[in-house]
Amino acid sequence: MKKFKIKLFTTILASGLSLSTQAADSLNIYAWAESIKPELISEFEKETGIDVVIDSYTSNEDLLAKLKSGTTNYDLVSPSQHFVDIMIKEGLLENINANSMPAFEAVDEKWKNQWWDKSSEYSIPFAYGSAGFTVNRDLYKGPANSWKEFFEPGEALKGKIAVFATPDEVIPAAQLYLGVPFCSEDSSEMKKVLDLLTKQKEYVAVYSSDNIGSRVGGGEVAIHSWWDGNSLKARKIDSAPIEYAQPKEGLVGWIDSLVVPKGASNVNNAKKFINWISEKDNATAQANYYGHSPAVAIDLSKSIYTQVNSPELFPTVPVVMARSCSPKAQKLVDRVWTSLLE
């Protein structure tokens, strides 16, 4: 798993400091890789005296597995909507009375009391966007307006396709293309998904959610699964010759929220950080760094992303939010993915 750290993770010192003493001035965050602006972490530390440590992950599945292992020391994590739902149902999150926090007042009304946290007690929405695919325009000159280019590429693209390493957004994308409902419990429909992915496999160079920018931007592959804001930043900041596709069948939607794992040692510090980063100036700086759409109010006059210069964030096609599945449907998803990678 790819990791970066703002500080080295410290252990209890030999001098005998207790865990409770350390907890008073610590905050351990587990977040999407490169998702939080480092300068904001430094500012938060200076203002509060709280030492922040960050580890990173690249998939919701990794995060869920880590929390279910019960061996983490994390105080704050940021799962996507369907995983918030799963984590609440499995008792993996603290009820932080999110709807009474100052941060909640900054949340866009459309994201409050949603199906993944109907009472808005566990989560504060953080950022949202879409998962689709990006094409390298030096290597691929064809259209980028259908999932067909990704799932049923031409012979010239054999070995030039790269796909996310986990099924979370790949299988929903295949379902959008085939017209199969998300979380289908119909084995015959999911067989169609497996057949599609199996046929695509001979064109796939790698299944990976790491180093996507260098892989597609550098021309190792011509088409790669990716997220809207990441593709945007690679195009604008790195001047990569890429384009984020707008498939007519739709994009897979996501919204990440800030939540506190059950049993966290530093719940109050986590809530302080959530409130702090949701303040308008901080939220604006964070949104400009992250490159995804903010779920809380920002200063639009200071936003560097607009509909004109950032089409990735303003899709012209439907965005369909991924959902948590029933045990029966999830079993079919797992079976499809396991069969694919055998």
Rank of each mutant, 00 (worst) to 15 (best):
I237G: 00
R235T: 08
L196S: 09
W111H: 13
I161Q: 04
Y177R: 07
I12W: 02
P327M: 12
P294I: 02
L313K: 06
S56G: 15
S239R: 07
N230M: 13
K199C: 00
K302V: 11
P311Y: 10
K328N: 02
N73V: 13
N145T: 15
S301A: 15
R235K: 14
P172L: 08
P172W: 07
L341T: 13
N288S: 10
D256T: 13
A144K: 04
W226R: 10
A65R: 13
S15A: 10
M101K: 15
E105W: 00
Y128K: 12
P102K: 11
D108A: 15
T134S: 06
Y74V: 11
M87G: 01
L76R: 03
L8W: 04
D210T: 13
A131D: 07
G132V: 11
K233R: 15
E220I: 12
A65V: 10
D85M: 11
D117R: 11
S42K: 14
D168G: 02
G218Q: 07
G49D: 06
I36S: 02
F273M: 13
L67A: 10
P38R: 01
S100W: 00
P79R: 01
V252A: 12
S324C: 10
E202I: 09
L40M: 12
W337K: 08
A270Q: 02
A106K: 14
P181W: 04
N269H: 05
L63F: 04
A245S: 15
E45Q: 14
V308I: 13
L332Q: 06
M1R: 03
K248I: 10
L251Q: 10
G129W: 04
Y305D: 10
Y122C: 03
G70H: 05
E279I: 01
N60G: 15
A98F: 01
A173C: 05
K110S: 14
N60S: 08
L67I: 15
S303G: 02
V77S: 04
Y57I: 13
A106S: 12
G91C: 04
